[in-house]
Design a protein around this nucleic acid. Structure first.
Lengths: 184, 184
DNA sequence: TCGCACATGTAACGTGTTACATGATTCA
DNA sequence: TGAATCATGTAACACGTTACATGTGCGA
């Protein structure tokens, strides 16, 4: 029950378990076969992480008793686990998140269906967009201030970043539209 | 001199020192004020990293003797250091790089000016583009196979990823044009 | 003289990476 | 019988994060 700060992987696991209870092995397959791959690699990370979550009382695992031999420990989130996850989902987005943790933000967004609230999702997208636009301003300024005679490659790398964030901004604007309608 | 595997931060430091010799404090400011911020935060990371690089003989630091009191250790890359860096710059790009280390790839590209070879840079961009297109195919397939009745948010998160990689692909195509001309 | 920017470091801690270890079940 | 897949873990290691420690020089 000790209060530890959870890592991105912890939240990813928690989120997946909220979708459907499953074993460590099942979770590994999800990471291997989907775009979530960037959040974990292998047994050495995932099993200890599940153990930690269990110790903290965020998930509970029970050995599947139907199959006698060949144990399989199926984990499901506890009430505290769900609360921790939703707290994370609704956490305020800051500059650091968009600067160096965009992937984590997208993970958060993916799990937002749990909240089942168009308002909260819209709010998430709007503050995401606002931070992205802010940061885009900063990047654009940096590109403008880049010395004319400086090497070409760093400038292009900067442009690559700008284009990526522009793409994120466009995506967010479009997504906001999808959550504009009234209702749940 | 022991052979250790270098981290991204190590290469970032090495690359910056190839641009101009400077102190740990100077380097920290670079990380704080530019888009490179995602690669380091603070003294606790950067000074130990410099120490490691020095032990491995990749950089050498000498205390600025002009200022009597108030020491300032200026680092510059050794020949081995430059070699390590260029080896990294010309390393083959694989799927894992585009899947989970795009930022590192952009860092590599930024330092490509050191190689001073349009051919190598073009080659870098072409294989980057090819891997990105490959991965885009995979992501698109995942989106198509996503169940119709599945939750909306994960699908949108997937689309966000797709759009980001599309932006990268567009950027790469444009950049390749800039390195098409004959010369150096 | 008060505080800020300069300038360099160390220590504890946790976590990801990599590699290894173990054994059951299924299928060719 | 051998290989691949299912299924869960442990151990060594290094790195990043965070917080702390220390002291100089300069400007208000």
């Amino acid at each position: 029950m000790t209060k530890h700060t959870a890592t991105t992987l912890d939240y990813a696991l928690l989120g997946l378990l909220c979708q459907s209870p499953q074993s460590g092995y099942d979770l590994r397959k999800v990471f291997e076969t989907t775009a979530l791959g960037s959040f974990s690699s292998s047994p050495g990370t995932i099993y200890p992480a599940l153990g930690r979550l269990e110790q903290q009382g965020l998930v509970e695992g029970q050995v599947d008793s139907t199959r006698a031999m060949r144990p399989k420990k199926v984990f499901r989130p506890t009430k505290a686990g769900r609360k921790t996850l939703t707290e994370w989902l609704s956490r305020k987005i800051d500059r650091g998140d968009v600067e160096r943790r965009t992937d984590e933000l997208m993970l958060r967004f993916a799990f937002h269906w749990m909240l089942d609230s168009k308002t909260l999702t819209r709010h998430f997208l709007e503050s995401f967009l606002s931070e992205v636009e802010d940061y885009l301003g900063e990047l654009t300024r940096q590109r403008k201030e880049y010395p004319e005679d400086g090497p070409l490659h760093p400038r292009l790398a900067l442009v690559a970043g700008i284009e990526q964030y522009r793409a994120s901004a466009r995506w967010a604007r479009k997504a906001i539209e999808e959550f504009k309608e009234e209702g749940s």
